[in-house]
């Protein structure tokens, strides 16, 4: 594709990935979450595949998107099993508080880890579909 699109993609890719992380992190209390964040991250890589080519996008991703699906499912499963350590039913949310200097106590819990799993699964599924369709 054109030089303009390639140059714009170099600036837009980090921006889109940052926005997807922002959506992932605040998803527990506000609109957003793992699903939308994953879609935005997949769109970022799809844009890269359009601007350069599919092989370049695969090289940028480093891992096969199908492996991302498996890793995401395992992360989501692990976040559910944490509750067993506290002798509570599967997938009960477990929370801990970490004090960050200047911000105060920040709640960290297993729902975020579950969202991270969803994020990885969505990125993997979308990129498997998009990249194999674009390769034809």
């Amino acid at each position: 594709m054109s030089l303009i699109l390639r140059t714009a993609t170099r600036f837009l890719l980090p921006l889109l990935l940052l926005f997807s992380l922002f959506l992932l992190l605040r998803g527990h209390n506000s609109p957003g979450g793992g699903f939308v964040g994953g879609l935005v991250a997949a769109a970022a890589f799809a844009l890269y595949a359009l601007a350069f080519d599919v092989a370049a996008a695969r090289q940028l991703l480093r891992i096969d998107p199908r492996q991302l699906i498996a890793v995401g499912l395992l992360v989501a499963l692990a976040s559910g099993m944490v509750a067993w350590l506290a002798r509570e039913p599967f997938m009960t949310g477990q929370w801990s508080y970490i004090t960050v200097l200047g911000i105060g106590p920040v709640p960290l819990g297993t729902p975020l880890i579950f969202d991270l799993g969803v994020y990885l699964v969505v990125v993997g599924v979308m990129l498997t579909i998009i990249l194999s369709l674009a390769e034809e």
Partner: peptide
């Protein structure tokens, strides 16, 4: 989000 994504379809 829409402003970042929307041009993707046009491209």
């Amino acid at each position: 989000l829409l402003a970042l994504i929307a041009f993707l379809g046009t491209v």
